[in-house]
């Protein structure tokens, strides 16, 4: 399982690309095996019962197939991308609210994200995973509480203590390139 956590982020990008490029059902099955039980776990921790969590997870996984062309590896890891889809489903199904999203920024057909940029971002994501895994237990519990829905925004500390500086700069750079390509 240790090699799994080390290499997953780069592998999963290729999986999503294969799903997008050729409707690769085997790549999808592998992605499903890894992520579906985690999405279901996330939804149950967020308050869904087993039936609803199963249903929503299937919808989340189907969305991954349908939106594979929108995945941008210079801005997110596959785990991050799937998290955002699962979170939106949670708000919709559990909190019965709409989820306003910022204006869409996507690569048009003429321009594509840079491979090097994608690789650096994926490495940053893996490093952040490690950093979070080694946080003091108390701090980790607070972050889990914030993400699994037990903490309101006014209860979240102003200083989260998370090492997000580098990843933020990388994403900012990716946004600049995308803005430039969109002109």
């Amino acid at each position: 399982m240790t090699t799994d956590t080390k290499t997953y982020s780069r592998d999963w990008v290729a999986h999503v690309e294969r799903i997008h490029a050729s409707g690769d059902t085997r790549a999808f099955a592998e992605l499903f095996e890894h992520f579906a039980p985690r999405v279901k776990g996330f939804l149950i921790r967020s308050g869904a019962n087993d039936t609803l969590a199963e249903e929503c997870t299937q919808e989340v996984m189907a969305t991954i197939w349908q939106k594979s062309h929108l995945f941008d590896p210079t801005r997110a890891s596959v785990a991050t991308w799937i998290f955002t889809i699962a979170r939106n489903r949670k708000i919709d199904a559990l909190r019965k609210q709409r989820r306003p999203e910022p204006e869409d920024l996507t690569w048009g057909p003429e321009a594509e994200p840079d491979q090097e940029d994608a690789l650096s971002l994926q490495q940053e994501c893996a490093q952040l995973d490690q950093a979070i895994a080694t946080l003091p237990v108390k701090q980790r519990e607070l972050i889990e509480k914030a993400y699994f829905g037990d903490l309101s925004h006014s209860e979240i500390a102003e200083e989260t203590g998370l090492p997000l500086g580098t990843i933020k700069s990388r994403i900012r750079l990716a946004l600049d390139r995308l803005r430039h390509a969109m002109k």
């Binding site: 039980p37 785990a79 889990e144 993400y147």
Partner: peptide, 18 residues
Amino acid sequence: AFDTVGGAMLESCKRVRM
């Protein structure tokens, strides 16, 4: 960047059998 933290939370989330 905060979404990335969410991704890490998902990755380490307790799995529930489908």
